[in-house]
Design a protein around this nucleic acid. Structure first.
Lengths: 218, 218
DNA sequence: GCGCCGTTCGGACAGTTGTTCGAAACGGGC
DNA sequence: GCCCGTTTCGAACAACTGTCCGAACGGCGC
């Protein structure tokens, strides 16, 4: 019974992972269930044993990706009070997962509007709490006198980070560590205005290398 | 004869403008030619008198948008030598058009991969020359010792600017002028590191208010 | 060996897609 | 008033879409 459950979960996970690849390559609407059937080796109707609809496939991919991103951020931020450190951890967490799961993250970033109804709302809610965390960190960081509109700053940060699926190639470009460092520095100096003022020692250092290569296996 | 030509052009332009709206609302693949027929009031087969295929519709929208963006940038940069000033003008030009033509620009940003073959290549070529201009400005700006990888910096800037279709609402958010100022400051300080050093007076000032509200009418 | 139940799949369904074709309507110049 | 090139459209096409149904399969407990 338990081994059957595990087999079921494994197969579902495999379907989701491959579906994410197909969606990221062709786009959600252009990709057909038949494409996913072909890519997974599971028959057309067989897919419907694991999932109720094509939309649920997209939902579970987004839910899974965003859930992991959020959970890991919570874990990383636990006990940390210094906002400089928090920002650094957020950027690093975000980019590490983005680069480590480019296909899935492209689907998260690019297919935001492809969900409808309750599933759309559920994912949007996660997105809202994620950006609220970021916005609060920036508010602490600017401490009273934000020279730059907080909404503009928050979404500029996300823009820098989420845009990478449009250009970043792990083979050609700088490694993730440097990418995270560059984007962190770019944003922080721009936002704070003065270089590293008030920053406690170690706040800008990289987090210990907790790689966790795939969101599908923890 | 000439008035007929004008009528033809006007109608084609109207079709493209409305098609851009439909594409931006439903996405290119989810929107059907029938949707565009309904929105424009032109019959299904009537559309094919103006355009050879659905893909050409998308192509002409992207071509038109990018072409205007590039042409106006060229015009603005003509004769300007100071890289600080150039950057400011680039950001302002980009954001002004983005905000003034949000629907079309969303189609440019979001449907980059929806074109194929030669049309894709043609638009990609425009995109390449646009980012080359930006990259060269950043190279001049950093003058020999770029603390941040140039590719990372360039695409971070584009990320900030192009992401706005995901969050910016003209009614709720700061005006375009402030948006451009914030993003310009955010990026410049982050990239240069020291505040406004070496910046000639007036370089950070806004360009004269040449609004040009729509790319479809010049 | 038998029956059960979780799993798999071929084949079909109705609806939608982009595109085409031939004919009709239009309008300016004779 | 007629003619001819431009413009418009209804109707149809084949291909493809997401989803569903009923039958078959497989291995496990008895």
């Amino acid at each position: 019974m338990s081994t059957a459950r595990i087999a079921y979960d494994d197969k579902l996970e495999r379907i989701l992972r491959i579906a994410a690849e197909v969606f990221s390559e062709k786009g959600y609407h252009r990709a057909s269930i038949r494409d996913i059937s072909r890519a997974t080796g599971v028959s057309l109707s067989g897919l419907y044993y694991y999932v109720d609809s094509k939309e649920e496939l997209l939902y579970r991919i987004q839910e899974h990706g965003f859930g992991t991103l959020l959970a890991n951020l919570d874990e990383l931020l636990a006990g940390v009070t210094d906002p400089h450190r928090k920002l650094r951890l957020l950027v690093e967490n975000h980019l590490r997962y983005f680069v480590g799961n480019m296909k899935e993250m492209k689907v998260l970033s690019h297919e935001a509007e492809s969900l409808t109804g309750d599933m759309r709302e559920a994912v949007d809610a996660m997105k809202r709490s994620y950006s609220r965390i970021a916005k609060e960190i920036l508010a602490e960081l600017s401490a009273g006198e934000p020279a730059i509109d907080l909404r503009v700053a928050t979404y500029s940060l996300f823009g820098m980070m989420n845009w990478i699926y449009n250009w970043y190639h792990p083979d050609l470009d700088v490694a993730v560590e440097e990418l995270a460092e560059d984007i962190h520095r770019l944003f922080l100096r721009g936002f704070i205005g003065r270089e590293d003022a008030d920053m406690p020692p170690g706040a800008a250092e990289a987090a210990p290398g907790d790689t966790r290569p795939s969101i599908w296996r923890r």
